[in-house]
Design a protein around this nucleic acid. Structure first.
Length: 939
DNA sequence: TGGCGGGGGGTTTTT
DNA sequence: CCCCCCGCCA
């Protein structure tokens, strides 16, 4: 068989020596890698156990194996134990076989057990870590000054993971190998980075990028008196002086380093004692083992080493590969343009500066005695340029993504970027391509409407087996930056009955199923009121009945029987299954929940109490879990760009290209962070109570942080990945286009979405206790339309509308018994109000008030926050934060609408109207307007 | 054209 | 709290 692609063939044939392969999107990388593997193992002297092939995901490993089996003399069985796997699973196997003493090389007096669990679920690791932090806090009072400014212990975990990914490990008395110097950072590297952003621009007339950034030095911060002043830091020239940067860099951080050391080392001990390993620890111990134990290393020493997706490897993985390799037959395959996993500590420099890093890392590994004996030069480069996926138009367009500024002010050296791109050539025989951008106020609807337009439309014809055919749902993928947008799209699609399969994370524990399970677990544990109240409300009991039942503990017999039946079950997952059966939860969400609970139970041996805590934490953190959707149906795929890596679709819609949405602001503030240039740094957050003593180091961190290079490159690569998934057509959608979309060479159309045709007219079943009056053709008036415009705007000021929504959600959850602890004054005001009410409570009820305006029937629709029904009277209570107080008279109009509706539902009762100002807890009675006055307002 | 202050909006991705 | 954008002023 001859391969018409000479680069591919060269890669397949060149089995011996060092190779760096630039394999762009769709260049047949899997094909080449698997053929190369076959070529290697088909040599008589080579067995599969001599060849390690490392992939990025388990799926990729499985696919590689399948493809190899179908094209070589080896069978699935013969390759079953072959090391074709991810770094993590390879490390896990090595530790199982050779690793029991690995911890001792760090001075840890414990061993690795073969039965150690590898924690794959981040939620489980985070709960174990939280437990560790509380024991650590108790046992190390000397670290309290630092611990008390860490608001979220989870960020410490990510610091430790970051350190582990860079090969920084603690030993009993200090740091492993060069760990301490890495913690201090790399001043020379930092000054080089500063050099790059500190050049005066426009031929020396304009200040440097860095000086511009430092405008805001200290602007929103309160530095300690020892902070260098803004004029000192910025200097008098067009470029900033470097001395303040050096001063900031050279500050004494021994307390912080001591803290990180003790934390890190104790966590390793804690995990060993609890018999578990994290992903990070797998690599950590394997690295230490291979460094310290020459016998194990020579036993493993692979004759051939191949690594796929090399742009997504971390420093420790690069070094692990060097230690695993027994010869210089090393081949790394990847595409720097698709490096999008820096949050998993991938460093794109591994591939962009492969040769330099190879030498540097080898020197580091050989520092105290020689470990790497094979030569690390010369490196042969192979560039795959033939693209088998997309049309040329798409490939050319995608390159623009790599040189597009993420914001107006960002300057990009487009020329130098283009020089680094290996241009791809399409071998497609068709070039029918649509590249479009749409803008619409209702973006989700626009996406669905466009999908509806595309399906069966010859203008979007796609190639299949040499013919152009009309596309169907299954040919379309919607790719988004975040899960949130995907979920939103899914829920709107469901309304219109469009076939959409969402793949990815779901907030499993925020489902109704999980909340019901939690309620029953609380009942099982202690007959807790907050469990019973939810179950009873679910069963249709009114608020006053529930209060009565709870008070007398007179639960319905049937429910007691169910509770006792649950109590007799020994396995927590069966409890879950039984509860789900009761409510008819049988979809993928319920299945996934049972699976999660079972595996959480297996890994940590949970009691019922632990389980309810576990669910509660999951609800609070909004942890997401992947759910699998049934395959085989003709449906649109919705997934994140990260999840779509390696996949391809005829038509790709890149959605949510909105301002501040696609390029993220760069992560929330953390008290402690690590960067290889500036080292470990603390960035103390402000306490509410300024009188308490606490340390600030913000000025140093702020200054150094602004010296670090721009983070937008990866966002451009992410966009590149999204576009190159497409075979033929690409569409972008936005509500308000961001800089990327604005600058890409594609016109943005104002798009008027139409309702997707699949819609089946379903009248919504009303479960409201306030009936909808019988008026034809209701006109869409809202109480807000009656009010002065600026009043409505004023609600969004200050703490704003979202804040108000949170208070409302809290109130609803509190009444339902889901939440019990108020966290701020506004919530406390709500709690004290609700606790003081004696009647039957109704919340968030839709109301409709028919009125006559200019002779026409109109309907004003609104939502009453809360009303409370007594035997003789009804109280209407509207929540407002303190901000809208001056608009009280305007809110009188809104409340009057509610007043008249409630009056008509309860004609024989006294109706009162009040506003509760949640900031103060104060209640303000309101005098309602008459119906006539309201009708006047509408005219 | 370049320097500076005020206003407003928003807080991922997952082996 | 942090950052971007806008617009004012020299």
């Amino acid at each position: 068989m001859t391969n018409p692609n000479p680069s591919q063939q060269r890669l397949i044939d060149s089995t011996d020596g060092l190779y760096l392969v630039d394999a762009g999107a769709g260049t047949g990388k899997t094909f080449s890698v698997t053929r190369r593997y076959s070529a290697i193992v088909d040599q008589p002297s080579v067995e599969p156990e001599d060849v390690v092939l490392i992939t990025f995901t388990r799926n990729a490993a499985r696919e590689m194996k399948d493809r190899i089996v179908s094209h070589s003399s080896y069978t699935t069985r013969e390759l079953a134990d072959a090391p074709i796997q991810t770094f993590h699973s390879l490390c896990s196997n090595i530790l199982d076989r050779y690793g029991s003493n690995a911890p001792q090389y760090l001075g840890i007096d414990d061993t690795l057990s073969r039965s150690s669990d590898v924690i794959e679920e981040s939620a489980i690791e985070s709960s174990l870590f939280a437990e560790f932090i509380s024991t650590f806090t108790d046992s190390c009072p000397e670290h309290h000054p630092i611990l008390r400014v860490v608001t979220n212990p989870g960020e410490l975990r990510s610091v430790l993971n970051n350190l582990a990914a860079r090969g920084i490990f603690p030993t009993k008395d200090g740091w492993y190998r060069d760990g301490r110097s890495k913690l201090l950072g790399d001043l020379d590297g930092l000054l080089d980075a500063v050099e790059a952003v500190n050049q005066p621009r426009n031929g020396g007339r304009k200040q440097s990028e860095l000086k511009k950034k430092l405008y805001r030095y200290g602007k929103d911060s309160t530095f300690l008196p020892d902070a260098l002043s803004k004029p000192t830091v910025r200097g008098n020239e067009k470029a900033v002086p470097v001395d303040p940067i050096k001063t900031a860099f050279n500050s004494d951080r021994s307390d912080l380093i001591a803290f990180i050391h003790d934390l890190y080392f104790s966590y390793l001990e804690f995990a060993l004692a609890r018999n578990y390993l994290t992903f990070s620890m797998l690599q950590l111990y394997t690295f230490v083992l291979l460094c310290e134990d020459p016998d194990t290393r020579s036993e493993l020493a692979f004759e051939y080493t191949m690594i796929d997706e090399f742009q997504d490897t971390s420093e420790i993985q690069f070094k692990l590969a060097l230690l695993l390799a027994g010869t210089e037959n090393i081949c790394v395959v990847g595409d720097w343009k698709q490096s999008i996993y820096s949050f998993q500590y991938a460093t794109v420099e591994n591939i962009t500066q492969f040769g330099d890093r190879l030498t540097q890392f080898t020197n580091e590994l050989n520092s105290n005695h020689t470990r790497i004996t094979y030569p690390t030069t010369p490196v042969e480069t192979i560039e795959l340029e033939q693209n088998y996926r997309s049309t040329q138009e798409i490939l050319d367009f995608a390159e623009h993504a790599l040189t597009t500024p993420s914001k107006k002010s960002e300057s990009i050296d487009a020329e130098s970027i283009r020089e680094r791109i290996v241009h791809l050539f399409s071998n497609s025989t068709y070039d029918e391509t649509q590249i479009e951008a749409l803008q619409s106020q209702d973006e989700t609807l626009a996406v669905l409407s466009k999908i509806d337009e595309i399906v069966g439309n010859p203008a979007y014809a796609i190639e299949q087996d040499g013919d152009l055919i009309e596309p169907s749902y299954g040919d379309i993928a919607v790719l988004t930056r975040t899960h949130d947008f995907g979920r939103e799209l899914l829920s709107v699609a469901e309304e219109y009955h469009l076939p959409v399969a969402y793949e990815g994370g779901v907030e499993l524990f925020r489902s109704d199923a999980a909340k019901r399970l939690l309620a029953w677990l609380r009942i099982l544990e202690s007959d807790a009121d907050r469990g019973w109240s939810l179950v009873l409300e679910d069963a249709g009991y009114g608020m006053s009945e529930i209060k009565h039942i709870l008070k007398k503990e007179a639960y319905p017999t049937e429910m007691i029987e169910f509770r006792d039946a649950l109590a007799s079950l020994t396995v927590v997952s069966s409890v879950a299954r039984r509860v789900f059966d009761r409510y008819g939860h049988d979809g993928p969400i319920a299945d996934a929940l049972v699976g999660q609970i079972q595996s959480a139970h297996d890994q940590t041996t949970m009691t019922i109490g632990d389980l309810s805590q576990y669910i509660k934490t999951n609800i609070e953190n909004g942890n997401t879990y992947d759910i699998s959707t049934p395959a085989g149906t003709d449906s649109v795929t919705v997934q994140t760009i990260h999840a779509a890596k390696g996949l391809e679709y005829p038509i790709v819609i890149v959605a949510n290209m909105n301002q501040r949405k696609f390029p993220p602001s760069g992560g929330g503030p953390t008290a402690i962070s690590y960067d290889s240039l500036i080292g470990i740094r603390q960035r103390y957050l402000y306490d509410d109570v300024h009188s308490q003593p606490h340390q600030y180091d913000n000025w140093r961190y702020d200054l150094l942080n602004k010296c670090l290079p721009d983070q937008a490159d990866e966002e451009r690569r992410l966009l590149y990945v999204a576009i190159t998934r497409a075979q033929q057509h690409v569409l972008f959608t936005a509500q308000e286009p961001n800089q990327f979309l604005t600058d890409l060479p594609v016109p943005i159309d104002e798009y008027e979405p139409s309702e997707p045709t699949e819609e089946t007219q379903q009248t919504e079943q009303s479960t409201l206790s306030v009936p909808i009056p019988d008026v034809e053709e209701p006109v869409g008036y809202s109480p807000h339309s009656l009010m002065a415009e600026e009043v409505y705007e004023s609600v969004t000021e200050g703490r704003g509308m979202d804040f108000g929504t949170q208070v409302h959600e809290f109130a609803e959850d509190y009444v339902a018994g889901i939440t019990t602890e108020p966290t701020n004054d506004d919530e406390r005001a709500v709690v004290s109000l609700i606790d003081s009410l004696t009647g039957e409570i109704h919340m968030e009820e839709d109301v409709y008030l028919p009125l006559t305006a200019d002779g026409a029937d109109v309907m004003v629709r609104g939502i009453v926050d809360l009303f409370c029904v007594h035997d003789d009277r009804v109280e209407i209570i509207d929540f407002k934060t303190d901000l809208s107080r001056y608009a009280e008279s305007e809110y009188q109009k809104q409340l009057s609408v509610y007043y008249h509706v409630i009056r008509s539902v309860y004609p024989d009762r006294q109706v009162s109207v009040e506003i509760l100002y949640t900031a103060t807890g104060e209640r303000q009675p309101i005098e309602p307007l008459s119906k006539n006055d309201l009708e006047e307002l509408i005219k």
